[in-house]
Amino acid sequence: MIALFDLDGTLTDPKAGITRSVQYALERLGRPVPDADELTWMIGPPLIAGFTELLGGTDDAQDAVRFYRERYGDVGLFENEVYSGIPALLRDLREKDVRLYVATSKLQVFARRILDHFGLSRFFVEIYGSEPDNRNADKRDLIRHILDEERFDPASAVMIGDRKHDAIGAKANGITSIGVTWGYGSRQELLEAGAACLVDEPGDLEEIIARGAFLEDTRPTSPIGKTSISR
């Protein structure tokens, strides 16, 4: 079995670093600065897409991304914390010979620094992210790139993430997805995007991934522990 993990909102809670860096970018642009809680929707989508929506167009979006990265690359990426239960989950999956990868829209260099900082890099075969020119920021492109590089069968893999972009990217590449509810996407968002099931706690993921429970032909809301399997 192969498991692709999103980073923000799935492995770590990046709210402080991301929202503060968005606020910094808006300040640099001379734009109104919303409260942090009004910016959590920016956690998950590709950064350029988020700023394009936030600013109402593309004119200032590239500058906003540059300003954002200016702060985020210095302090923002470490204003972050690992979700409880994640290190144990990754360790247990590795012990069951599940091959683990990171698939994040975040810049690959930032993702590596974060995972190194928290001691999580050792669990992953490889860490994949976007490039400074926004290549592979879209999860559909990123997962396609991973398949091209790693050459594994999509039917043997699962994508785990907290936002619709994870489920959409997985579906576009023939991969099943699991939505996690401790991040920043709603249950409705994840199910409508095509997630095969929803998981409420990291500890519930091990059994589901290791035995392929997400592939079972279940019907709406069949419980596995505290996990909802929904089709």
Rank of each mutant, 00 (worst) to 15 (best):
M159I: 14
R99F: 00
Y83L: 04
L147Y: 09
F124A: 02
N136K: 09
R112M: 13
S177V: 11
Y83F: 09
S84Q: 14
I127C: 09
L100P: 00
R151A: 15
E79W: 07
H165R: 04
D162L: 10
R151N: 12
G169R: 00
T58D: 15
F67V: 09
R135C: 05
A64S: 09
I143E: 12
N134P: 02
S156H: 11
G169V: 08
R71F: 08
L120K: 05
E149D: 13
A137T: 14
H117N: 10
G161W: 02
N80P: 09
E95W: 05
R99M: 05
A157Y: 11
T104I: 10
G174M: 13
G57T: 07
G56V: 02
K171T: 14
V102W: 01
E81A: 14
D162T: 06
T181R: 06
E150K: 06
A88V: 12
T104Q: 02
P154I: 07
D166T: 06
Y68H: 07
V75H: 09
K106F: 00
A172E: 12
G50T: 03
G179S: 04
V180L: 03
Q62I: 12
I160D: 07
I178S: 03
W182S: 01
V125N: 12
G169S: 04
I48N: 12
E149F: 08
I168L: 15
S105K: 00
G183N: 00
L107K: 00
R91I: 01
F78Y: 15
S105A: 12
F152D: 11
L47Q: 05
R135T: 12
F123P: 06
R71T: 06
S177K: 05
L89T: 08
H145T: 12
A170H: 12
E81F: 10
L147E: 07
I48H: 08
I86Y: 01
G57S: 08
A170M: 12
R151Q: 13
N80S: 09
V158A: 05
H117G: 04
G73W: 04
R99Q: 12
A64N: 06
Y101H: 10
E95H: 08
V180F: 03
K164G: 13
E70V: 05
K139M: 08
G85F: 00
V158L: 08
E70G: 07
D153W: 12
V75W: 10
R71L: 13
S84P: 13
Q62N: 09
D138E: 14
E131F: 15
R151P: 08
T181Y: 00
I127H: 06
P154Q: 14
I178D: 11
D162N: 06
N80V: 10
L93H: 03
D60R: 06
D74K: 15
L107Q: 07
L120G: 05
A111C: 09
R91W: 04
R144I: 03
I127T: 13
